[in-house]
């Protein structure tokens, strides 16, 4: 077993330090070391988006980022989105539109949607579909997810 490295990073605005093996992905670090289990593993090879987080303002699949790569960077995860007494507008829109069934894909979709709306606050339906194409949902058929993201954009 390789020696663990010490990593310091910012997660949801807080400075966090952790030890991780070089082979551990950011997803493993979040889930297994830091117990931030909101990011989910659906495939572990970049094809489902369930593990989506925002790294220094960019949407990434955390299963494809190594934990050690986050040294000095800033990570946003689903756990950091809502204020203590108020959901983020995208979260509200997902609830109001019934945009989740089993909910396993939901954190990933919400983080992807946030990354989209951060850089394009008024996307068209096609732009939403294009942007979210890296996130798989097997339950909803996407109709209500797309509506929720369009609603969240309109609400802002």
């Amino acid at each position: 077993m390789a020696r663990k490295s010490h990593v310091q990073t910012t997660i949801n605005g807080e400075t966090v330090e952790f030890l991780c093996e070089p082979r551990q992905s950011l997803l493993e670090v979040l889930r297994d070391e830091l117990h931030l289990t909101g990011a989910k593993e659906g495939c572990n090879n970049g094809n489902c988006g369930a593990c989506s987080v925002i790294l220094d303002g960019r949407l990434v699949n955390s299963c494809l980022v190594l934990g050690v790569e986050t040294e000095g960077k800033s990570v946003e995860t689903i756990e950091g989105l809502a204020a203590p007494d108020k959901l983020h507008p995208i979260q509200d829109a997902f609830l109001e539109n019934a945009a989740l069934q089993c909910g396993i894909c939901t954190p990933g979709f919400i983080m992807s949607a946030k990354a989209l709306l951060d850089q394009n606050p008024n996307p068209t339906e096609h732009e939403v579909r294009y942007w979210l194409a890296g996130n798989l949902c097997r339950c909803t058929g996407y109709d209500k997810i797309v509506r929720a993201v369009l609603d969240a954009a309109a609400a802002d």
Binding site: T37, I78, E79, L87, Q91, F94, L95, G103
Partner: peptide
Amino acid sequence: IRHDGVDKVTGRALYGA
């Protein structure tokens, strides 16, 4: 709004893994 909704949009809902 579904009863388990807030847990599921905030990442707090605990799945098997």
